[in-house]
């Protein structure tokens, strides 16, 4: 009965959304802000990857908010798990097999490298701080799976996290103090398509990469190390 009702309700809602979607033209460049970004993005921000220029520059404030959400979630998780830690006695974790162990050890540095590559080149190629950070975090996930007993240093991860976020905010405030707006791109934009271009965008993306990486790794750490 309950399922049926839910189904009916969802059908109605979906119908409504479809009706609304009908009005939206797909594939036609009617999206006016999007058009502007594509046309003027590189010129205004210096980032070749338009997505990055939108994420970090045009809508950089959203990105600041998003890393805050992530931060909030991580802190909240650790706050809840930190107080709600029930120890199950005698729970044994099976040691990983040799293949897993070797594979993980082999992949760990490579993943770190890939992650770093992605966020450093965020303004040039697809990807950026979030993706790079996630890849780094998955490297740590592998480390937890493959290497028994190893874990990240909590203090280090927190310092990295905080510094990453602070870099973002400080860069924003510098923009403010030099008389322009918050998050103003005050560094020289440089030549597009080179690593040292797009002003503060790569700096922010690197900071985000570190922050996201350490944060997600911290979350994994909290989940796995519940029985400490």
């Amino acid at each position: 009965m309950r399922k049926l009702i839910s189904l009916i309700l969802l059908v109605i809602i979906a119908g409504g959304i479809v009706l609304s979607l009908k009005e939206i033209p797909f594939g036609i460049s009617k999206i006016k802000i999007g058009d502007y970004y594509i046309k003027k993005g590189i010129e205004e921000t210096g980032a070749t990857n338009i997505v990055t220029s939108v994420v970090v520059s045009y809508r950089g404030f959203d990105t600041l908010g998003e890393i805050t959400i992530l931060f909030t979630a991580a802190i909240g998780l650790s706050a809840v798990l930190g107080t709600y830690r029930k120890r199950k006695a005698g729970e044994k974790v099976e040691p990983p097999s040799f293949i897993v162990k070797t594979g993980c050890r082999f992949l760990f540095p490579i993943l770190l490298l890939v992650g770093a590559y992605i966020f450093i080149h965020g303004h040039l190629t697809p990807g950026g701080g979030f993706q790079g950070g996630a890849i780094i975090a998955s490297a740590f996930l592998l480390m937890y799976l493959g290497c028994e007993g190893k874990r990240i240093n909590e203090n280090t991860s927190i310092v990295v996290e905080v510094l990453g976020a602070l870099t973002f905010i400080v860069l924003g405030i510098i923009g403010l103090t030099i008389g322009k707006d918050f998050l103003f791109n005050f560094l020289p934009k440089g030549e597009p398509n080179t690593l040292l271009s797009a002003g503060i965008i790569p700096v922010i993306y690197i900071a985000i990469g570190f922050k996201v990486g350490s944060e997600l790794a911290g979350i994994i750490d909290h989940l796995i190390e519940k029985n400490q």
């Binding site: 309950r2 009702i5 839910s6 009916i8 309700l9 969802l10 109605i12 809602i13």
Partner: peptide, 13 residues
């Protein structure tokens, strides 16, 4: 959750 959906669906309907 059903209440929320019900509210929304009712309005749309």
């Amino acid at each position: 959750a059903i209440y929320i959906m019900l509210f929304l669906a009712l309005l749309i309907f």
